[in-house]
Design a binder for these strands. Sequence first.
RNA 1: GGGCGGGUAGCUCAGUACGGACAGAGCAUCAGCCCCCUAAGCUGGUGGUCGUGGGUUCAAAUCCCACCCCGCCCGCCA
Length: 649
Amino acid sequence: MVSENPFAVFHSECEKTLADALKKLFPKIQITNLALEKPPTSEFGQLASSLCFELAKQVAEKPFALAKRLVESMDKKQFHLIEYIVPAGAGYINFHLDFGKFSALTIESVKEFDTDYGFVKVEKPLKIIVEHTSVNPLHPIHIGQARNPVLGDTIARLLSARGHSVYRHYYIDDVGRQTSVVAFGYDKLGKPKPDTKPDHFIGPIYTITSCLIEIDRLKKELKRAKTVQAEEEIIKINRELDEWVAISAELESKYPQLFGQLLDKISEDEDPENAVNKLNKAYEEGETKAKNLVREVGTLCFEGFRQTLNRIGVSYDSWDWESDFVLGGHVAEVMQKLKKSPYVFMQNRVWEFNAEEVAQKLNLKAKLGLKEDYKIPSLTLARSDGTTLYTTRDIAYTLWKFQKAQKVVNVIGMEQALAQLQLKIALYALGFAEYADNLIHFAYNLVSLPGYRMSSRRGRYITFDEVMDEAVKRAYDEVSKRSPQLSNEEKQKIADFVGIGAVRYALAEVDPAKPVVFTWDRVLNFETNSAPYIQYTHARACSILRKAAKKPEKPSYETLKEKVEHEIVLSLASFPDAFAEATEYLKPSMIADFANALSDKFNTFYNALPVIKAESQELSDARLALVDVVRIVLRNALNLIGIVAPEKM
RNA sequence: GGGCGGGUAGCUCAGUACGGACAGAGCAUCAGCCCCCUAAGCUGGUGGUCGUGGGUUCAAAUCCCACCCCGCCCGCCA
């Protein structure tokens, strides 16, 4: 007998036994929640019910006495996976597994389902778009942003394994003003060919150009403020100016040649800020020259992004240019529809979307988890020069996504929570309530550097490429230390998946809601609770199987009597539930935790009990089978979070 | 000022959605383990007012209320 979810078989057996007993003793009492949960230690069995505490209130009897009576009334002949049931504590009912049978069920099930074990399918598969990363094409992806592709890709893998049709989209935000800034600088330099990785080449151009324009703007503002003697403003501008001048000095010493070139060229311009705005407007209007220029820079950057992401196992089904939605008229169409709705008004010569009014009229606040007296800020839809703003464009993009999918998950930093809320409310306002309900903002917290926030505008960041390079380098040192006998080529290969795996694990393992301060030793961990630890455990399992050099012929699973063996079996059997929960609640970290916990148990087992040289052939075969299924589950879990499961390391 | 998120061992974090049995790991630190299938490992010790104060409950890290600290957002940026 096999099952795609062995623990669920036990669970439903307990449920039925308990429900039957309840019905027999208290036919009139209705209790819907049987309160079955996993007890803290195996001493209390593998499932327990605290229902007697609740029941006690209704029947005026002590919880423990109730537990005792219920247990006594149970029909032991019906037991299959249950070995025995006991009342315990102050009134718990503890269900103990018959591990002889349960080990057989679990091990056979894992073997049978193999590469698909654990991945229980959803009843109604959906088409789901996961939009993630969507870093602007201005500079290399930095470590602060790197949390996004890792989380996004892992979510996509989870949903896909769950049976959904998943499409990974990258939204190329090429319309924003910043894109025009970098294009402006690039143009000033005479569109140079990159002499390094293209995104690393573009990065400093953006930062320096942005800095020079900012200084120019502030100087002009200062002049204006001085003519009207606005003292407070002058102080404020001066402070800002000081900061930017300091940044420019930093940039000049870092990139002397490039800085000089850009300074010369940009100073030639009377009003660089205005030139950028003009470029931005021309781009939105689809003017050929502007379009070619901006797309050229964007494409260069993306070539670099593709390389970076590919290295960590992240790929996309679609790269969506934001400008296509502007040029294709989708954004204008949305604007038209919104203006026709009663929720858009004119203020200071621009159109504003009254999200607050929509929420009130359509009674959305409770549904969206907002306090009734919270006033949702309005959203400005376009600039006074007619160019569009980010969230407005995102509405058009979102509508497009829903033509292709029933559910959309946007992996976007939590700092954009308000914009995402306004976007959702706009969908309701336009009459697309069903879309709004199926739009999920998967928010994650910021990654900062010790002492300060990463800032691409200020050129303060550590690139994702650097982090991976460093991780692989350190992994190489580790491999050389631990396995000096390997060839250089082998060492390099191992260092690669260990280093990259460590980075991926470190970013996926922490709850996305937590803020993260980046430090090297946080990411480059090769000990317990890291990808290398789990990879090592997998390799150890493979090593035993290799050394045994045979299939288990007649395993006798009843011989697996050690506590740690039972714990392993239980863990394996719980993988399908862990997977389903991780997927339903979009919690990639649960898979990492699961794999780590299973590794802990396996290593304890490895250290304490011989497999190949076990006391008897039956036991040896049973343990061999156990090792094999641990290997399968570790591999499946690692694959789910995009980490290589190596046979040797 | 308002909104959102976070606050658990010296450090990094699980656990909070659905309240349950003495709050779990890792790092650091201390003491041990390669006779044996990979020591990137294992065993044991030290270490906790679960931000604070109330409340609900047989039972609260978990639910409710108030407050404190940190971060983010409230832009004709994205």
